[in-house]
Every structure is written in structure tokens, then in C-alpha cells.
Design a protein around this nucleic acid. Structure first.
Lengths: 339, 339
DNA sequence: TTGAAAGCGATACCAC
DNA sequence: GTGGTATCGCTTTCAA
């Protein structure tokens, strides 16, 4: 029961040699159609499935990708899941096997696949890279191909991500032209992703003849709690800017709550913009304006940079689409071309 | 460069036989301490890593678990991500390798790992089982151990999940005693998960001497959009019940929006309860009451039922904790013991 | 306590 | 077109 067949069994059953069976299995040329037909019939009838381990012992055939996720201690952010899902589906299409591994503690990678199974893995996607990321050290040491998602600290390294600078530059340029005078940017850490976003906004202000000092950059907004606390304090101190950009829609919920509690009207007294376009954003009252990353495109570029394909262009920086919604003051909301 | 060492290299380097090297690597007994020390030293110095494929060719040693996710077409729900993260971390601890695979189309599983690599995989966690799930057919055929997350349609099958019936029964009992008279339950499909929830609520009504007819069960609420549309219509028709339970916090956002737009006060005119305890729930205004599943416990039970451990009890049904918040009318909110 | 040799189930190379 | 056989790197069995 449950006996597993091998090519030798098929060889015996068909009367041909194991090599010929292998030829049929791998769709090699130089096999008589009749032979192939006969062997294929047997393969089907016994429900033969090759042994993955044997297949990869002599020569590595199966492509294996590892998605390594340095999970932030906060509740995971939704875009991550969409990203993984897209990557998973793509891998399936291309016959790539996908591991997903979360790691909490960058210092104890001992048991991780990344560290243990060199030679087993053909490519790694590094999510949430940190400065001097030990994962990247290991990957470099072991000569394993990898891509980082979003701009890497390590400049020598390939990455794929949102065109954060361009997105923010173009958004704030447009807003400045419509009369925006001041803004607050709430961000987690001064990561490269965030500094790109900040620089985009600042340069837009400058290039549109506005006072760069009117942009208030605030870091250490780890989650919605901090966003709430910050907003509450800003209201209390009477220091609320015209617009708040907050990195990550999930965090925007904290801003909304603080504002709502204090009776400040979002989309009228103040404008809010998020990033990621999680589905719930549409249902906030008023609906949250945000950037929608091209998750599918990002996934494709990620896989392509691990396994380049003839003639396939890799977009390393993909511009997210701005989705204007009711959280923008009417004056700021106009003239965006929704696609 | 990047030459991979084998046990033969180590044998040569140490002067012992490959078998002795293997003994050391696998911590077998019958090795002289001095021998072990010497060999271990060499292993460390050359940064030896065993070949996974060779290791598993003769006899399967590595445990491989596949998380198979039948992804709903809607944006993925957040609890799924938490679940996977917990499972991933647990696998890491136990030296289990975890694959994650999403599938959209239950009818085209051809390219999936599940279908392709039998013999490679030692256990599967099936998420979002559907009726007559082809995945389960394959798993049974191929004799691959598996668990289903949440109560399975297939009665012959092992599962681990939330104690949905108990959770809803106990909640609604408590609410009935505090005077709840009518309620609406918004659900996606009449899955077993949902019918358990429904039955829990209905029986609580009955056992507390309330009219079971006052519970309004509504299916086909796939996402927040449908929840919004339903609520809007209920308001318009003047048919709003005292309380709305909605399966999945994400969907509750639609209810909130409809209610807010119409000026109906949540937590006063009407009470709302969700399920999943996503972090954003706390930031809704008013904060959303919900059930918090024990994700860690669920992950542990899932892995344990795939690979039972001596003396470890498996909780197949884990009661989620009810988190009362401001979305409950004060009269209904009292007397819950927050833990 | 140690080692020799025979697999495991594919692939690869070279004959025919 | 087809087949023989060495080979991949480890485990297993049995003998010393």
C-alpha cells in the first residue's frame, strides 16, 4: 500500500531502459512517439511521481525560493500578505517552490532555513531589511542569490520596490499647486523607504516655491497607537497641519480616531493620506486617500530578478497609484485622474 | 569558490571513515569523545552543511509541512497572516520546513506542490476548506497526513479551530440575560464555522427564554461592501436589530460606515460585535467589540496533530476570548471579565 | 568504537 | 532512438 514507483519500475513495466523512461519524463528528444506513448500510459496508470530528493541529488533541478520575513513585533501589516500571495501564485506558475519563513529575532537565526540549508535554496526574497542585516551577511557569504524588497540599506544589493520618492514628489507637487501650505509626515523609522518618501515631499515643496520648514517630519510612529497619541497631542497643542501623510493605512486609523474624538472634520478641517491601500481604507468615514502599490508587478519583478528571463524587463521601482478619496479637502481633491 | 564539502571530505580531513563522520553529525552514540571533538572541529572550520537531498534520498529525515491556502478572491483576511506567522515560527523551532502555497482555483491544482510533490511533504494544513475539497481528495488518495483549520465538511477528517459554537453560545447567553431582544448575524457562507456560530447564538436565545425568531441570519455578506449595502438597506427599511454580529472584523467596517453616514450611534442605538480581533478594531470609533482567537494555541494544535508528541495534549477546539468594547451598549457591556 | 559496502532514485555521459 | 553504467552525498546494515 502506498508503494512508490520509480523509473526502474516503469522501465520494467514498459520493457524499455530507465534512461528512455527518463527521456520521456523530461520531454527530451530522440524518443520514438510510440515509445513515449507507451511509457506515458504506464506513468499515468500507476500515478508515478518522481522523487524530489533523487531528482536534485545529482543535479539541482528544482528551483526553491525562500521568502524571509523579518516580522515587526506589531501585528503584521496587510500589504505583506498580499505580496506573499502574489509571489506564491507566481512561483506556482513557474514551477518554483516557495518557502516562507518569519523571523522575529535578527540575532538568533540559528534554526532558520536561511542559515541551515545552504545549497537547498536558489533564491531569497528579503522582506523588512534592517541595517547590517545578518540575513544579507549570510546570503553573501554563501553566495545565494537574493533580492531585497524596497530600497536596501546595503547599496551593493539588488532590490525591487515602490517608487517612493516619485510617488510622494508627484503627489505633493500636485497638492502644493492646489494651495497646500503645511503638512505632517508620520513615519515609523528613518528607513530608506521613509527617507525617500520624506525627500519626495520636501523637494516637491521646495520646487513649488513653498517653505520647506512647513513640513513636519515625525518618526517613531510604530503603529496606530503612536499615531493616535501624536495626533491627540498635536490637537491639544493647536499644532495640527493642513494635511497628515501617514506611512501605512493601518496607522491612519489612529489618526482618524484622535481626530474624530476631538470633533475635527477629516476632509474639511484637515486632510489625511495613507499608503498601501488596504481594503478597509475605503470604509473609513470619510474614506481614506492612499497609495495603491502594484503588488502583482512587484511580485513579478522580485521573481524576475532572482531568475532573469530572456527579454523580460525588470522594473525595479514601480510607481504606486494615488487613490484620492474623501479624506482630502475638496480643494486638494480635484484634478486627480483616477485610473 | 563555494565548493561544497561532503562527509567524504571530512572523513579524509579527519582520518576517520565517512560513517564515523555521519555518526558525529547525527549525534549517534558509540563515538569516542576525542573522535567527535576532532570531527566537530573540522565541521566547524569548513562550515559544512549537509546536502538536504542526499539526506532525504535514502530515508526521509526532514519534516516538511505545507500550508495550503485556498485564497478567497477578496483581499486576504488578516487573521490568516497571523496564523501563518505563528505556524512558521513554531516550525522553525521544531526543525520543520514550511511551504506556503496559495491556490485560487480549486479546479486547477495541477501545478500545485500539493498535487505535484507527493512523498516530499509530510503533512499539510488545509485552510479554507470547501465542500468536496479536491485537496482533501488528493491528500487522502496519496495518504498524506493533514489537518483542516476550522471544522471540516468532511466528517472523517481531523481539524483544529476556534470553539465557535461555545463562543457564540456563551456570548449570547450573557447578552440575553442583560436584556438583548433581537440580533442580526451577518455571515459569508453557511460554512460549518458559520453554522456553528449561528447555532450557538440561536440556542442561547432559546435557552434564555427568548424568541428565536428575533435572530435574523443573513448570508452572502462576502466583504465590507456587502455589509455596507445590507446595513444601509436595513436602516432604510427601519429593520435594524438591537445588535449586529458580523463574522470578521474587516467586514464590520462596512457596517460602521453605513451606520455612521446615517447618524445612527453605534454603542448606543445599536451594538456591533465582530470576530478576529484585528488591531484596527480598537481604533474604530467607537472601538469594536470582538472575539480574539488564540492564534498561538491554534498553531500549536495544528502542528501537534500533524506530528503528535508524547504527552502533549491537543486542543482541537480553542475558545476565543471575547473582547467587549465601546461598540456595545452600556447595558450589554457590563459584567464581562476582561482577562 | 569503527569501517566497508550496498543502496536510495534520479541524472549524465558515452556507447551502440 | 536506445541502453549501460557511473555518479550525486548521504543512510543503513553488517561485520570487524
Amino acid at each position: 500500500m502506498g508503494k512508490r514507483y520509480t523509473i526502474y519500475d516503469i522501465a520494467k513495466l514498459s520493457g524499455f531502459s530507465p534512461k528512455t523512461v527518463a527521456r520521456v519524463i523530461n520531454n527530451e528528444s530522440n524518443v520514438a512517439p510510440a515509445t513515449a506513448a507507451k511509457i506515458n500510459e504506464i506513468i499515468r496508470s500507476i500515478d508515478y511521481r518522481p522523487n524530489e530528493y533523487a531528482k536534485n541529488l545529482k543535479s539541482k533541478k528544482t528551483k526553491v525560493v525562500l521568502a524571509s520575513i523579518n516580522s515587526p513585533r506589531e501585528f503584521p501589516l496587510q500589504w505583506m500578505q498580499v505580496m506573499i500571495e502574489r509571489v506564491s501564485l507566481l512561483c506556482q506558475e513557474k514551477g518554483i517552490t516557495l518557502f516562507v519563513e518569519y523571523c522575529y529575532d535578527m540575532t538568533s537565526l540559528d534554526k532558520s532555513i536561511l542559515n541551515t540549508n545552504a545549497g537547498f535554496i536558489d533564491g531569497v526574497i528579503v522582506f523588512y531589511e534592517v541595517e547590517d542585516d545578518p540575513r544579507i551577511r549570510i546570503l553573501k557569504e554563501r553566495d545565494i542569490p537574493f533580492v531585497v524588497f524596497e530600497r536596501a540599506y546595503d547599496k551593493t544589493v539588488e532590490y525591487v520596490g515602490n517608487a517612493n520618492y516619485e510617488a510622494l514628489y508627484s503627489l505633493f507637487s500636485s497638492l502644493c499647486r492646489k494651495g497646500l501650505g503645511s503638512a505632517t509626515m508620520l513615519l515609523r523609522k528613518p528607513t530608506l523607504v521613509n527617507t525617500d518618501r520624506v525627500n519626495g515631499a520636501i523637494n516637491a515643496f521646495r520646487d513649488n516655491g513653498k517653505d520647506v520648514g512647513s513640513i513636519n517630519i515625525v518618526y517613531d510612529i510604530a503603529g496606530a497607537d503612536e499615531a493616535y497619541a501624536f495626533t491627540e497631542e498635536a490637537i491639544w497643542k493647536g499644532k495640527l497641519d493642513e494635511l497628515i501623510f501617514i506611512s501605512g493605512d493601518e496607522r491612519a486609523f489612529g489618526v482618524y480616531r484622535a481626530l474624530t474624538e476631538k470633533g475635527i472634520r477629516i476632509g474639511e478641517d484637515v486632510s489625511i493620506i495613507g499608503f498601501d491601500n488596504i481594503p478597509s481604507s475605503r470604509f473609513l468615514v470619510p474614506s481614506l486617500s492612499t497609495f495603491a502599490p502594484d503588488y502583482q508587478g512587484l511580485a513579478e519583478s522580485l521573481i524576475l530578478s532572482l531568475f532573469p528571463e530572456e527579454g523580460a524587463r525588470i522594473d525595479r521601482l514601480i510607481v504606486p497609484e494615488f487613490i484620492p478619496r474623501d479624506s482630502l479637502r475638496p480643494a486638494l481633491r480635484q484634478d486627480f485622474t483616477r485610473t
